[in-house]
Design a binder for these strands. Structure first.
Lengths: 141, 141
DNA sequence: CCTTGACTTAGAGCGCGCTCTAACCCGTAC
DNA sequence: GTACGGGTTAGAGCGCGCTCTAAGTCAAGG
């Protein structure tokens, strides 16, 4: 698979794929006779993993570290685990923070009253109907 | 209150406070006889709000819009509400995404097995103990 | 009077994560 | 053979959100 094909399949741009290789997020790909990168489908799994780590806000430098450890072999398993574990803690904390802010936001929005376009309570919400309160709450911004 | 004092109380640096004023996140503060900014304690409420919006990932340009609407008066209430509401949807979606990734991450970490430093399951977790699986899972990264 | 320290401004610089440009090289189809 | 649609490289540029620098003003304390 050449870079264009991989770009299509992975959702990354060819530019980004080359960039990731340069900075060590993707392994150096073998080149064909005309120096073009030739990828194995297995790279997609790795890119998917990178995408997830990106979603959860892991900085590139940590992903690079993980990638290096991975290439260093099985002896680095515990270190890799620890790396993921630390990040997991950060993400959990972040989610908790977001949820706390959402509660405040819900209250504030409720304070604006009116325009009751019922947004269905999907997920983590704890908004219970209340009187508009527009004078008091909306005024306190 | 002068800028240094506000910096201490708000947690922002004086640099950042001036920057926020420049870009329109904070209202233009009145200056005393020697041109120094003099703040009213009420600004802290607004800074707190900005901080929460920042936490939930609202881009500065949206906060600026909100600030402008706010200064434009009560006639913009519905628009402000809508702005917050739209952002709330985005945050909810983001939280859901994070939680989905956390599940995968939990599985992956469990796959590494060993080093059972019991991280207490606070919150959104669904990790149940399992056999190491190190050969299969750890190999699949 | 002079130092100290907090303030003022305009504007440069930074870290992150891409994103794009320029100039070039290949292989295939017509 | 030549046009085309890929690919290659090194490196510049960008949007975000600060963060800091330089050079200067001011007011209070010793």
């Amino acid at each position: 698979m050449k870079i264009g094909e991989l770009a299509k399949r992975s959702g990354l741009s060819a530019h980004t794929i080359r960039y990731y290789e340069r900075i060590g997020l993707l392994p150096y790909a073998r080149r064909d006779r005309s120096k073009q990168r030739d990828y194995d489908a297995s790279i997609l799994t790795w890119i998917e993993f990178l995408g997830r780590m990106k979603t959860v806000g892991m900085p590139i430098r940590d992903m690079r570290l993980y990638a290096r450890l991975r290439e260093a072999g099985a002896s680095t398993q515990m270190e890799r685990r620890a790396l993921l574990d630390r990040h997991r803690q950060r993400v959990r904390a972040h989610v908790a923070e977001l949820q706390a802010c959402l509660l405040v936001l819900d209250t504030k929005i409720a304070g604006y009253g009116g325009t009751e376009q019922r947004t269905k309570n999907h997920g983590t919400e704890s908004i219970r109907r209340r009187k508009p309160l527009s004078a008091r709450v909306a005024r306190s911004l």
